[in-house]
Design a protein around this nucleic acid. Structure first.
Lengths: 194, 194
DNA sequence: CACATCTTGCACCGATCGTTTCAAGATGTG
DNA sequence: CACATCTTGAAACGATCGGTGCAAGATGTG
């Protein structure tokens, strides 16, 4: 029945991340996590610790996977909110290509369920959102925006990102999401790119 | 111990709504609902039915209470996304004045927890969001916008509303929320008023 | 082969979940 | 007062929750 690990740890974490992403923390029961990952309870607990620890590792895994998309969109010659929005739409397209990827955004789902998280989970969600905001702000500064512009645009871009995540969760069509994204990209200040 | 009802039904519903609002559907346990309303289990079940029915009545109660704020903001001489944003900020101010009102927006919290809701709950959340969107669109049409403008602005206003709710849930300051709100009000098309 | 190490499946733990039942008590009507 | 009606508190239901214990089996090392 055993011997060496019979599963890929990183792939299991990816699937666990999807379970939290789809169901949120409280509704992501151990049964759903074992079913989603294919692991037994012993393997789950032995590898990742308890549910709270697995959730935090899923958050880290999420940031490692998706935040570089925004960084990449911002590192080009034309960093702008529209680039970030385009990055989000790319995630949406990835989701369409791979139906196992859930709707919306793990960070947004976690943020709206804030009171349901323990102290460590809340701290990590806050830290991740702050990191994303700082990443956006720094990229805009590097693109030549002044301090005030960069701060405001980073915040608004984050807001647009979150609104897209909510509307996607509520079942809005990709056309509607694209409409919101392009409109947000017309926010004054977006023209700081060259 | 009994006889006639020893509580106000509408006030109890308002408190139950706050519990769902703060905790979300799954984390709003019966114990938290009884504690939040001050009612016993028997009174809760006898008056409102099971948890799902109470949740749906809370959603209706929420729409009756807060959607008129948007309608009111839009019925003035200058209906615009900024007016809707102002309405949301007013809700925030009400929350500061009355600390028992939770963060964010019951509809947004419910939307992000979509998979955790039963069929009836999902249908009602969808219907309420569609209603709000239609309300915004109709007001913009009445203000003189053409069909395309009204549709796009209504959608974007809804998006801004949702992003404010998420950021508020994540603990962003009122200054940050105001920044997002005023920036969104600068979206082209907002000048259709007079 | 002998042995230590690690992994796995299964059963089980107490706690909490949503829900139901029921007797006791308070009220309105005759 | 007698009686039907309604409400309430408390106990209890089966189901599920997150988490643990343990024996059986597979592997690596000697």
């Amino acid at each position: 029945m055993a011997g060496r690990k019979q599963f890929d740890v990183d792939e299991a974490l990816r699937r666990a991340m999807h379970v939290f992403w789809r169901w949120g923390y409280s509704e992501a029961s151990i049964d759903r996590l074992t079913e989603g990952t294919g692991l037994g309870r012993s393997s789950l607990y032995g590898t990742f610790g308890d549910k709270s620890a697995l959730f935090r590792k899923s958050l880290q895994r999420y940031a490692q996977t998706y935040h570089p998309l925004y960084d990449q969109a911002l590192s080009g010659p034309h960093p702008s909110p529209s680039a970030v929005v385009a990055a989000y739409l790319q995630v949406t397209l990835n989701r369409i290509a791979d139906p196992t990827v859930p709707d919306g955004c793990l960070l947004t789902v976690s943020a709206t369920q804030f009171p349901a998280l323990d102290t460590e989970g809340q701290a990590m969600v806050r830290a991740m959102i702050d990191d994303l905001r700082a990443m956006l702000e720094q990229a805009l500064l590097a693109a030549g925006a002044d301090d005030q512009e960069a701060a405001e645009l980073a915040l608004c871009t984050l807001a647009t990102n979150k609104s897209l995540a909510v509307l996607s969760r509520a079942g809005f069509s990709s056309e509607d999401l694209a409409t919101v994204a392009t409109a947000a990209a017309r926010i004054p200040g977006d023209d700081i790119r060259e």
